[in-house]
């Protein structure tokens, strides 16, 4: 038999090192709260150019120019076919009652469905644009309904809230609006 060739020592420990790295990573993955939402990368950037027709006759439509009048406001992405959107209705109503302006973007919705939704759950919106092809939704990096964006007076996106607004989220949204206004 020929001279035995011995592998160098540190390479023998390499697999164990790599495995321990994996185990650490897996551990951190297990105990990190599952983050399934995709955040918009548009925070701090101006709203894209768009003009949406009115989703219902009793409110005007929405365009970029409407969002740059010096006043901060909320932009709520919703749809009549979305259940959590109904869940957040009372919170939106409360915000509107405080004098906060909320504009709506109705995703892939028929006028009669939007009207029925508003009749049932209230209408906190000053304007509602109909986004039939997710044009605005894609333009601001929103990946679902409902989502709520804080827009400052210059028409810049300042904050994104993913999912329905629950009562515990109200204070944060008010703070973000205040920041956007200053």
């Amino acid at each position: 038999m020929s001279e035995p060739h011995k592998p160098s020592r540190w390479t023998l420990w390499l697999p164990l090192m790599l495995f321990l790295g994996f185990a650490g990573l897996a551990m951190s993955g297990l105990f990190r709260p599952a983050e399934r939402e995709v955040e918009s990368a548009m925070i701090g950037k101006p709203m894209p150019q768009f003009t949406l027709r009115a989703a219902v006759p009793e409110r005007p439509g929405l365009s970029t120019a409407d969002l740059a009048d010096g006043k901060p406001r909320l932009l709520n992405v919703f749809a009549s076919w979305c259940l959590p959107c109904a869940v957040e209705a009372p919170q939106l109503a409360a915000l509107e009652a405080e004098g906060i302006e909320i504009v709506g973007v109705a995703i892939r919705d028929r006028p009669e469905d939007v009207a029925a939704f508003l009749a049932r759950h209230g209408n906190p919106f000053s304007r509602i644009g109909a986004d039939d092809r997710s044009e605005v939704q894609l333009g601001i990096g929103s990946s679902g309904v409902p989502e709520t964006f804080v827009i400052d007076g210059q028409g810049k996106i300042r904050y994104q809230h993913i999912g329905e607004i629950r009562p515990e989220h109200l204070a944060l949204l008010r703070d973000k609006l205040k920041e956007a206004g200053s």
Partner: peptide, 11 residues
């Protein structure tokens, strides 16, 4: 399907 949305798909 109705629950999904009521609008035909984009062109």
């Amino acid at each position: 399907l109705q629950a999904q949305d009521g609008v035909p798909p984009a062109p």
